[in-house]
């Protein structure tokens, strides 16, 4: 059959993003593990030690699977592309989504670097339109690419008139 489908956007995010996603996920799991350890140490309610150890082991296994598999899966899915006319992104892993916004309807272009992203020398770019539903977010870009993308989108968006609603 000859049905048109969406092709994936052209660019992958930076490879470093894999490490960034892994680190972010690992941090979350570490907090949970720490809480479990504290419970183990401070426990005086008579929960048997084996139960604690099994709980810890289970958390560790799930955490290891999530931390190793999720970033790789994400890296395969996350892609972006900006043309003079539109921004196009693909994201998600279990629930995938493709977002397309015309450059003529762009309201703001933000670039942001969280502390963890700084550590991996990454940045994300958020493109908002006049709709409150779902800005387009491109995460895990290396800094230069992010800056180039922001400059490009801003220049293109300025070229169109009107209040973009």
């Amino acid at each position: 059959m000859d049905v048109p489908t969406l092709r994936p956007p052209r660019h992958r995010v930076s490879r470093t993003a894999i490490w960034y996603w892994a680190a972010r996920a690992a941090l979350g799991w570490l907090i949970l593990l720490a809480a479990q350890v504290i419970w183990l140490v401070a426990d005086d309610a008579g929960v048997p030690l084996s139960a604690h150890v099994i709980g810890l082991a289970a958390t560790a296994v799930v955490a290891a699977a999530h931390v190793t598999l999720m970033p790789l899966w994400r890296y395969r899915v996350h892609r972006w592309e900006a043309t003079p006319a539109a921004v196009f992104t693909q994201s998600g892993w279990f629930r995938q989504e493709w977002r397309i916004a015309p450059v003529s309807r762009i309201q703001t272009v933000d670039s942001e670097r969280g502390p963890l992203e700084q550590l991996f020398r990454l940045a994300n770019v958020t493109v908002t339109t006049a709709s409150a539903a779902g800005p387009i977010k491109v995460g895990g870009l290396d800094r230069d690419t992010a800056q180039r993308l922001v400059a490009e989108l801003t220049a293109n968006a300025q070229a169109t008139a009107g209040d973009a609603t």
Binding site: L6, E97, R99, A101, P102, R105, T129, S131, I136, T165
Partner: peptide, 8 residues
Amino acid sequence: IGWTVERS
């Protein structure tokens, strides 16, 4: 002012 295609 934009489209989103979502697939679980």
